[in-house]
């Protein structure tokens, strides 16, 4: 067998690094704690990843279109608080559509700023992260939001229900993944998202309305966030103002882990689902090993850095290069 040179190993790691790292994690966790690979634990990981997963599906569209969305965490807090508040005044039948409309309006604003005004998406959504947080606090008067009659409403079905023994959040996540996977892979809109993110100038030169495409991606992301907020509200029937805080980074980590390029133009819904699961299993494994919950924030950061580095390394075909 031919010996692998240092460069070959570097190239291999650059291409397959995430999967190799993931495999090592799984093996390590299973040895460390036999509970890790049991059906119960697996189901629990998927269920607790569902909210993050739903958000990651929408962000996948944004990232493939060549942009970022850092506002999804605080937008999810907003959706959760709004639907909980309106529930007691309007009832679930009206509260849910009203919350979706308000969340989509936020998505439309971001889409307008990034798509039509061509403002940098990092700045716009970072600003929105803070602005929406302020909006949520203003809306709630800084108080936590609770539903009065927790047992007498069908709102609970989205977060606590089960169908055929499978938790509803998982079903929503998988159904949305299937739907959006088809939208992205099979429809003209999906094709345009790839074209705009792959080479926006060439897309414009091909008669594609770039601004509209980007706008729709942010609407898509907002719709997913609203869905995630609904599941969150339904699961806890009460919430803090900061329930989604920090999730924007986890969502981004999942999307990049799945292999979508931050430069745009590549990635798939399927890969994002894989990314969500990898992140979920690593966090769960670390918990089972007795790592403090708060240490997870550090771990998430390490995973993001690793993923971004490997993304760039895969493009260069080596782990390090003197020029960018």
């Amino acid at each position: 067998m031919a010996t692998m040179t240092k460069k070959d190993i570097g190239g291999f790691l650059a291409r397959q690094g995430i999967l190799v790292a993931f495999a090592l994690f799984i093996i390590g966790f299973t040895i460390a704690n036999p509970k890790f690979l049991t059906p119960d634990n697996i189901l629990s990981v998927v269920r607790s990843s569902a909210i993050l997963g739903v958000m990651a599906l929408g962000v996948t569209f944004v990232v493939i279109s060549g942009n970022l969305d850092l506002s999804v965490g605080s937008m999810m807090s907003f959706s959760t608080i709004v639907v909980l508040d309106l529930h007691d005044t309007l009832g679930p039948t009206m509260a849910i559509p009203a919350m979706f409309a308000m969340t989509l309006a936020l998505g439309a604003l971001i889409g307008f700023l990034v798509g039509y005004l061509k403002l940098n998406s990092l700045i716009v959504t970072l600003g929105m992260l803070s602005a929406i947080h302020g909006l949520t606090l203003t809306y709630s008067g800084g108080k936590n939001m609770d539903i009065d009659d927790k047992s007498g409403t069908w709102l609970s079905v989205f977060g606590q229900g089960q169908i055929a023994g499978i938790p509803v959040p998982i079903l929503i996540f998988l159904a949305l993944a299937a739907l959006l996977g088809i939208v992205l892979a099979k429809t003209p809109f999906g094709r345009k998202v790839y074209a705009v993110g792959g080479n926006g100038v060439a897309a414009t030169f091909s008669g594609i309305r770039r601004a509209r495409t980007v706008f729709l991606c942010y609407l898509m992301s907002a719709a997913c966030v609203a869905t995630a907020g609904l599941i969150q509200a339904s699961r806890s029937m009460g919430s803090q103002n900061t329930v989604g805080q920090g999730m924007e980074l986890e969502v981004l980590a999942a999307v990049i882990l799945g292999g979508a390029s931050l430069l745009g133009g590549s990635g798939t819904i399927f890969k994002t689902v894989i990314g969500v699961l990898i992140l979920g299993f690593i966090q769960n494994g670390l918990l089972l090993m007795g790592l403090q919950f708060y240490a997870q924030f550090v771990v998430t950061w390490v995973i993001i850095i690793l993923a971004v580095w490997l993304d760039i390394a895969a493009k260069r075909g080596r782990l390090w290069s003197p020029i960018a």
Partner: peptide, 17 residues
């Protein structure tokens, strides 16, 4: 820079408009 989306396949580039 203007004519092609290099990371897309031949068919998708051709039918883009």
């Amino acid at each position: 820079g203007q004519g092609l989306v290099l990371g897309m396949n031949c068919r998708d580039n051709m039918t883009l408009p």
